[in-house]
Design a protein around this nucleic acid. Structure first.
Lengths: 127, 127
DNA sequence: CGTTGTACCCTGCGTATGAATGGCACATCG
DNA sequence: CGATGTGCCATTCATACGCAGGGTACAACG
């Protein structure tokens, strides 16, 4: 069993703390590919978290290919977990966005306008 | 004199309404290159707006090369005003951002994460 | 049946942001 | 001096968003 500690008062969101610690456990070999992870409800109960919070962390971890959910059979550590735990998708996103934003700023576009346009782009999806 | 009407209850910000109407006047030849515009304080008084609101609109209009402020001599319609009024900088910004965002979404990045990363990018500047 | 992951609904709290307003000051022209 | 555009300081209000929580329900296994 791995030890996971969630600090409610931490500025870092709970689901993010969970992700960090699971990725950390993979990187330090406390979790190995194929290992079974506690179920969402189980872990939520152990850590005194809401199901949704744990589910969110699991969902993101699976998208990052750090874990693998096998439907009704539970959740397991992904074969390439160690590699994928090291990759910081967030950093990639930031750098990509940064490039675009810098380009726009260079064109004399106001930060406010960039924010507004960004909001539009993010909302246009559902309409 | 051109007629400008600002609707306080409109969802569109006042300064944006001002910009729209001035650009519109340029496109319909109610304003021609070289024409003098009312001073910031004057227009603010006429339209019952705050100086800052008008100043904001003028600042953005000048950046879009629709008007030209000649310091203490007042503000005038830019020689290329008609061309530049047609260009919607906002649209350009939206399309550029849209491309980047779509690319990220395609990589499986969550909208929330994009928003967070975007916020980081916009704030990292001052630090 | 019970457990698995997952999906949808709605709520409240805290924070961040923009919009608008106000005040004060400046340098430059005429 | 008076007018110009411009700068920085501040505040108030409303809105949007993320985070967390609660509830209910579903299909697919064992």
């Amino acid at each position: 069993m791995i030890e996971i500690i969630i600090d409610i008062d931490d500025a870092v969101p709970q689901f993010a703390q969970l992700i960090e610690q699971i990725k950390g456990a993979v990187l330090t070999d406390k979790l190995s590919p194929g290992d079974a992870l506690p179920s969402i409800r189980q872990l939520a109960n152990d850590l005194q978290l809401n199901n949704k919070t744990v589910a969110k962390a699991y969902r993101l971890l699976e998208r990052d290919a750090v874990i693998q959910t096998k439907g009704y059979r539970g959740t397991f550590v992904h074969p390439d977990a160690k590699t994928n735990s090291a990759v910081d998708l967030c950093t990639l996103v930031v750098s990509k966005l940064s490039a675009t934003v810098e380009e726009l700023r260079g064109s004399g576009v106001t930060d406010s306008e960039i924010r507004i346009a960004f909001g539009d782009v993010m909302n246009r999806r559902e309409s």
